Amino acid sequence: MTLPAAVETAPAETADAFAREWEDWHETHEERRADPHGFLAVTGLFWLTAEPRRYPGLPGEWFTGVTGPVVVLGDDETLTVDGAEVTGTHAFGPLAERDGVTVGFEGGVVEVAKRGGRDILRPRRPDFPFLATYTGTAAFPADPSWRIPGRFVRFVAPRAIEVGAAVDGISHVYDSPGYVEFLVDDEPFRLLAFDGHRPGSLFALFTDATSGVTTYAANRTVSFEVAEGSDTTVIDFNRATNLPCAYTDFATCPLPPAENRLRVAVTAGERTPDRRVHGEVSAEGLIPAEHPGGR
């Protein structure tokens, strides 16, 4: 396979400058991850059913049906939806897959979403012990050699790709416009890519020879850009990051497709977190084990 030449760097871009740029990027990424209402603040994972039920720490009785999630609030209970106070019965309407809304309650917020075809609740509290004690995620030292040129190969038409999930019983479907091919030590590899959040933005879920050893066993993700009408790109594995499931059992993260299990050791990007939230099964769903944040 013929691939683009090595990425040219400006004369002033030394290894130290590359490392400083990566550190600034990773610090920003960590700030987003540690948001008071982000994934590190999730206190449970609850699957809605047709039977009205109360869930730990949340106001109201919740259920779902063909019209989507519904909450019935008690006389002294309220939620904040789109900035307005809600009382009584509130219907959220049908939710699209991987879509949802975040509503407020006293002490936190709750994500009302659809994952794997099922409606779910995920409460998030800024005082959750795991978030309060989070000190960051270790990563391999920034290494310019892992900023690799690649070629994007487009399919004739996008393909719907079904992948597994971090929780049993569900799967995810993503649109793939093609795959990126690249070389590591002159050996060819390729990764199936999925559409990102904006035009030209793509991402790949992958595992490699470090997975389960020095990096999280189930998955990592790396993003890259491909301009319209171009087939060249750069994959910076230094910016390979963990998905939420590396930190909590309350995530429904997608798993990599089989073809994205790389044989090479990608010694770049984020490593295995030193702590994570373990869930235990309750009548309502998954709740934190006795000591959230333990190994």
Results as ranks from 00 to 15, higher is better:
Phe46Lys: 05
Arg115Trp: 02
Glu225Thr: 13
Asp119Pro: 00
Glu187Gly: 00
Tyr216Arg: 11
Glu51Leu: 03
Ala265Ser: 15
Thr272Trp: 06
Arg20Lys: 12
Pro36Trp: 08
Ala12His: 01
Leu243Arg: 11
Gly116Tyr: 03
Gly285His: 09
Phe63His: 14
Pro56Val: 06
Leu262Trp: 09
Glu31Val: 13
Ala240His: 05
Glu106Ser: 15
Val222Gly: 14
Leu3Gln: 08
Ala289Pro: 00
Val71Ala: 09
Gly117Gln: 11
Gly38Asp: 00
Pro4Cys: 06
Tyr179Glu: 15
Gly100Leu: 06
Ala258Lys: 15
Ala34Glu: 03
Val101Pro: 02
Asp76Gln: 13
Pro188Asp: 13
His172Gln: 12
Val173Ala: 10
Gly169Trp: 00
Ala240Asp: 00
Glu30Val: 15
Leu58Asn: 09
Thr89Met: 06
Ala15Trp: 01
Tyr134Ile: 10
Glu97Cys: 12
Asp274Thr: 08
Gly200Glu: 09
Ser145Phe: 04
Val226Lys: 00
Asp186Gly: 00
Gly57Val: 07
Ile235Met: 13
Glu30Cys: 11
Ala138Val: 12
Ala6Leu: 15
Asp249Phe: 07
Ile161Cys: 10
Gly196Ser: 12
Ala12Ser: 07
Asp236Lys: 12
Gly74Lys: 03
Gly150Cys: 14
Ala34Trp: 04
Val86Tyr: 08
Ile170Ser: 09
Pro288Gln: 11
Gly178Arg: 12
Arg271Asp: 15
Thr2Asp: 06
Phe18Ser: 13
Ala283Cys: 02
Thr215Met: 13
Asp168Cys: 00
Pro292Glu: 09
His172Lys: 13
Pro254Val: 03
Ala209Arg: 02
Val71Leu: 14
Asp99Gly: 15
Thr207Ala: 02
Glu77His: 02
Thr9Asp: 10
Glu111Pro: 00
Gly285Ser: 08
Phe250Ala: 14
Thr67His: 04
Tyr55Gln: 01
Asp75Pro: 10
Val70Ile: 15
Val277Ala: 07
Thr135Ser: 15
Val167Thr: 15
His37Phe: 15
Ala17Lys: 07
Leu202Arg: 04
Phe105Pro: 04
Pro126Leu: 05
Glu187Trp: 02
Ala227Ile: 04
Thr137Cys: 07
Ala10Ser: 13
Phe155Leu: 13
Arg53Trp: 07
Phe224Met: 14
Arg159Phe: 10
Ala50Leu: 01
Val281His: 04
Thr241Glu: 10
Glu181Cys: 05
Thr49Tyr: 04
Asp75Gln: 14
Asp35Arg: 14
Leu202Ala: 01
Ala96Trp: 00
